[in-house]
Design a protein around this nucleic acid. Structure first.
Lengths: 231, 231
DNA sequence: TATGATGAAATGTGATAGCATTTTTATCTT
DNA sequence: AAGATAAAAATGCTATCACATTTCATCATA
């Protein structure tokens, strides 16, 4: 174990991966699973030190994330993870619903039994993560479950947009997970799989909306009630 | 006139703007109005030379644009403007429709007479650009027209996603403009304004869909028929 | 105690240079 | 003439440094 202690989850780095790409993927993953709380301040030197890289690739990674609305560049050029407000949270949830409904609808014609099997496998892993009470694994596997479906359409252009929304909801994930036990969401996944087996767009849409609205949205609202969100 | 000759449109640079931001805005604007054709190859050194900047800010601008799907990073790490295919075009148009319908619906409660006046003013400028047969102006003013509406919602998070789609459709704009006279689109703007005055969501949605589908989509399909799109 | 000034530390920005890889061009072989 | 090979040029990547600005801590003053 020659890894430094850090709150930023590790990701495997392949050979053909550039340092900048590695930094991007690590920061992105960290934000997506809520490793940084909303409003958390970041510095380029600090991140470079923490990831043991030079500043240049960190800068480029941060720039990319700022263009995906995952990191905010303030007027004084300092960096922070965006804060969450009830209004913005509502907006992100509605946007996520619209985007994922669209993505699912346009992927449905490409659904095969093999794909469903793969989603079932991921869902089983997710169940295991729930049992282990592993919030990072739960978030990642939940995303993976949805991503398999949305990527079926070979010409899809929606996935980067969905990922941007996930990124923006990421810093809030910790609080959502703490507030909410995610039982509903799990059950909804079973409904989604059933709808996919029937190739039933209406049922798919309903269970997808329920997955997002009853899972994320309810928990988020509750978390926002007590939590302070600085401006 | 001490400006170098270049196909990249100029943008005014304010004092508090960093070099990286300036480079980003210029490249972004260039792509959005179709200054580069689909598949066009870019180099960091070349862009730095053309914009008379050093490589560092260019690299950061390119990274941001790559994260917005406006520039593609190939396996050999070379850069190019993405190519257009019928499948991807269809996907982008549908995505644009869904996003803008959502944005418009969530902005409608914030519409005021002042806002409508501003949109009317932009639409008149657009008419003038059509008369002058100024494709760059037409594209920019068309975007401005829609942007005013979608930005009304103070918590909106949809605009960056819409801009990403506009960016991806940008390289195709030249061909669309050449094929299509944009008359329909202009008329649709009048319909949109009428729907806004009535605060009529249904009418707004219909005219918005028509604006996108009958304007962009039809012209795009026609342009894609004859044009070759290299892979 | 509160407030403002001052110096030090921290931070973001941008230019540059060296390196590795890729692409292109030139040359040679068959 | 065509293909292989090697040299050369172009390109992307990243570390580093100097500079300007911002932030923070300290201290003096009202």
């Amino acid at each position: 174990m020659d890894q430094k202690e850090t709150s930023i989850p590790h990701v495997t780095r392949t050979d053909e991966m550039t340092t900048q790409e590695y930094a991007y993927l690590r920061l992105r993953s960290a934000i997506m699973v809520g490793a940084f709380p909303p409003g958390h301040k970041l510095t380029i030197r600090g991140l470079a030190l923490e990831l043991d890289l030079s500043q240049t690739p960190i800068r480029e990674a941060v720039r990319r994330l700022s263009s995906e609305s995952a990191i905010e560049v303030l007027g004084n050029r300092r960096l922070r993870v965006p804060v969450m407000t009830p209004g913005r949270f509502e907006e992100l949830v509605q946007l996520r619903t619209v985007l994922e409904l669209h993505a699912a609808a346009r992927s449905l014609p490409y659904v095969s039994d093999i794909v469903i099997d793969r989603m079932v496998a991921i869902d089983m892993e997710l169940d295991a993560a729930v049992v282990k009470n592993d919030p990072v694994g739960m978030t990642r596997l939940n995303h993976a479950f949805h991503r398999v479906l949305y990527c079926l359409n070979p010409d899809q252009a929606v996935m980067p947009l969905v990922e941007s929304i996930w990124l923006q909801l990421g810093p809030f994930q910790r609080q959502v997970m703490a507030t909410y036990q995610h039982h509903y969401s799990i059950d909804r996944h079973k409904e989604i799989l059933g709808a996919l087996r029937q190739r039933d767009l209406t049922a798919l849409s309903e269970s997808l909306v329920a997955d997002i609205q009853e899972g994320l949205a309810l928990a988020g609202k509750e978390a926002l009630r007590d939590t302070c969100f600085r401006t």
